[in-house]
């Protein structure tokens, strides 16, 4: 058995205490909107309750140079509640793709790398994505990663592991995002929840969850704008460009070779409610604006107005340059 075969069909289920717990995945695929839902199903299998394997991080170093791994074809960063799940599901609809959507083990490894000096961090990140994104069908050729929204704050570290891989940052009108957070708050926006990622909120926001959300999102938007200036392989995509941009700007940027089957898959994904595939997608921008009261408008303007406007300026300029450049 060579080093590649050792972990073939196995996947990192979770990381704990400096170790990796591997579960058997066989020919199962990531088809749920989020990786964690697939991992949860795998963990619940009787086999994986009893026969998980454990390794240290060095196993990832071997996998980072595996000949069998799929190369990463694109990374999706985003501000959350902005269509990123649609993008992931559309990419997953391609007949030859593997999509890792917000994989929890990737977040945990980033936390460890931030907390302590661990050698070979780029190879570890690469090895983890190789392990999670193993081809499971003969036709699998493309591998995509959709990160958690706060991972844009670690883009330097992530891109050092994946140099030259095209990336995009997806964002949306801050009022619509904040209304979404107000209706259904994300757990990671609880004040302090992102301390392990170096995001320590100002003391006066500790007891104000929605305003804390705005503060986090300001950091996310700012870091995206700065990343656009530092890393040339990125594009900005606004929610209102979806779903058309899936088969235009995104497809071009990620070098997708779209035939009729692929385009049909992308369009089909665009018609569904991505977090509940049994329902059709309903546009809700107007509804969200109608729900935004004066306080929320003020919050959006104060924390996010400038950063959002800056991204829109950059997106407009980049789009103009692309059009002029042909």
């Amino acid at each position: 058995m060579n080093r590649d075969d050792n972990w073939k069909n196995w996947i990192p289920l979770y990381l704990k205490g400096g170790c990796i717990e591997w579960g058997y995945m066989g020919r199962e695929r990531f088809v749920e909107p989020f990786c964690q839902e697939t991992l949860q199903k795998l963990a619940a299998k009787p086999f994986n309750q009893l026969f998980r394997r454990q390794s240290n991080l060095a196993a990832l170093l071997e996998l980072s140079i595996s000949d069998n791994a799929l190369p990463l074809s694109g990374i999706v960063f985003h501000m959350s509640r902005c269509g990123s799940t649609l993008v992931a599901q559309a990419l997953a609809a391609l007949p030859n793709s593997v999509v890792l959507s917000e994989p929890e083990p990737f977040d945990k490894l980033l936390q460890w790398l931030i907390a302590s000096q661990i050698p070979n961090e780029a190879a570890l990140l690469r090895g983890l994505i190789c392990a999670m994104g193993q081809p499971r069908r003969t036709e699998d050729r493309l591998l995509f990663l959709k990160t958690d929204c706060w991972h844009i704050c670690h883009i330097d570290r992530i891109l050092s592991a994946f140099p030259g891989v095209p990336w995009l940052f997806l964002y949306r009108d801050p009022i619509e995002v904040l209304v979404s957070q107000q209706r259904r708050p994300a757990s990671y926006l609880i004040p302090g929840a992102l301390a392990r990622h170096g995001l320590y909120p100002p003391v006066d926001l500790i007891s104000q969850p929605l305003e804390h959300s705005a503060w986090v999102l300001k950091r996310v938007l700012r870091d995206a704008a700065e990343a656009m200036m530092r890393h040339p392989g990125g594009i900005l995509l606004n929610y209102h460009e979806l779903p058309l941009a899936l088969e235009t700007r995104l497809a071009e940027h990620f070098s997708l070779n779209l035939g009729n089957i692929e385009i049909a898959g992308l369009r089909q994904a665009g018609t569904l409610d991505t977090k509940n595939p049994y329902r059709l997608f309903q546009p809700d921008s107007e509804d969200k604006h109608a729900d935004a009261d004066a306080d929320l408008h003020a919050m959006a303007t104060h924390w996010l107005g400038e950063a959002y406007a800056e991204l829109e300026r950059m997106r407009s300029t980049n789009n103009c340059n692309v059009q002029v450049g042909g």
């Binding site: 069909n9 058997y24 299998k45 009787p46 086999f47 994986n48 026969f51």
Partner: peptide, 9 residues
């Protein structure tokens, strides 16, 4: 591995 993995019950 493959055979046992398929058993859900």
């Amino acid at each position: 591995q493959a055979r046992l993995f398929e058993i859900n019950d």
